[in-house]
């Protein structure tokens, strides 16, 4: 529950300051009174209350039946940090963030630069690259579990073409995370590419032309004009990539369910495997609260430091 809440908090934030400013400047107190209560009510009901509840439950040893009675203080948090799997899950989340930033974003940016101009086939190519993003996460996971299958999968037949024995990527703790990272990059680079294309098309072409006339090479135009103009979009894209990485769950479940030996759990799949499916509501809530704190800390810091101007 709370990982969704965290997302809602983050998504909810950008709109708030702007809305307030407009309302006060226009002096439309009426509109404020009309529109704010429903939003505030929904926000409280589905975000603030569940977070509060999770925090409350995290102090109990409770299996979800009746009401919680066995108060154990911060023991659940201690249990979480004592579990080897949680450390691995946390490390995996960091790994996903790193790969998103180092592999996925540059790939998306490069493709955007190539496809932003109109030429024959550019729209078709854009659609092609964007398609994986449209696919449902669970469907993607299932498709790739077939591709990776070491006996019948696509990968296995490719290996066989070269006369080699296919590896079972999902069955080994060493490669399971690699397999998931490949799917993550494949699935989400199209989304970031679209963000960049939109920004490139909205860009003032005169600046590029001016640089050209001043004798800048293609590379210099790119390096000193286009990319600096893309900074706001890049910052936004990084934000989405990080928050998305922290919440990754539905791709993991059909592929590996976090295994083998916890090697491919993310924090959210760890929460599901250890909290929900074991009916340890208190323990699960503690993980949820930790995840929420990480998300909020990141969101606020990032906004403060990198997205101040927007």
């Amino acid at each position: 529950m709370s990982q969704h809440s965290a997302a809602a908090v983050i998504r909810g934030r950008p709109a708030a300051p702007g809305a307030r400013r407009r309302a006060t400047t226009d002096g439309q107190l009426g509109a404020l009174l009309l529109f704010l209560p429903p939003a505030l009510l929904l926000f409280t009901l589905f975000v603030v209350l569940p977070i509060g509840e999770a925090a409350w439950y995290s102090g109990f040893n409770w299996n979800g039946f009746g009401s919680p009675t066995r108060w154990i203080g911060f023991d659940n948090y201690r249990f979480v940090f004592d579990t080897r799997g949680f450390g691995i899950a946390f490390r995996n989340n960091l790994l996903i963030i790193a790969v998103s930033l180092v592999v996925q974003l540059p790939l998306a940016l490069t493709l955007a630069l190539l496809l932003a101009d109109k030429f024959r086939g550019s729209v078709a190519l854009r659609m092609l690259f964007f398609l994986p993003y449209v696919l449902a996460e669970v469907a993607t996971g299932l498709i790739f579990s077939f591709i990776y299958d070491g006996n019948y999968g696509l990968l296995a037949s490719v290996y066989r073409m070269f006369g080699a024995e296919a590896p079972h990527l999902l069955a080994s703790p060493q490669t399971s995370m690699l397999a998931i990272l490949i799917v993550v990059v494949w699935k989400y680079f199209g989304f970031h590419m679209m963000l960049f294309i939109a920004a490139l098309q909205g860009m003032d072409r005169n600046l590029v032309e001016a640089a050209r006339i001043d004798g800048a090479s293609r590379w210099q135009v790119l390096r000193h004009v286009v990319i600096p103009l893309l900074y706001p979009t890049i910052r936004l894209s990084v934000f989405f990539a990080v928050v998305g990485s922290l919440q990754l769950f539905d791709l993991v479940m059909p592929l590996t369910r976090g295994g083998p030996a916890d090697s491919s759990n993310t924090m959210v799949s760890f929460l599901y495997n250890n909290g929900v499916s074991r009916m340890r509501v208190g323990y699960g809530s503690a993980i949820g609260v930790i995840l929420f704190l990480i998300c909020v800390t990141f969101a606020i810091t990032y906004k403060r430091w990198f997205m101040r101007d927007e």
């Binding site: 006996n151 079972h168 990527l169």
Partner: peptide
């Protein structure tokens, strides 16, 4: 079987 940690029970029964 090779890759048994990646097999669900249903797949193993099929195998």
């Amino acid at each position: 079987q090779t890759g048994f940690l990646g097999f669900k029970n249903q797949q193993a029964l099929g195998y």
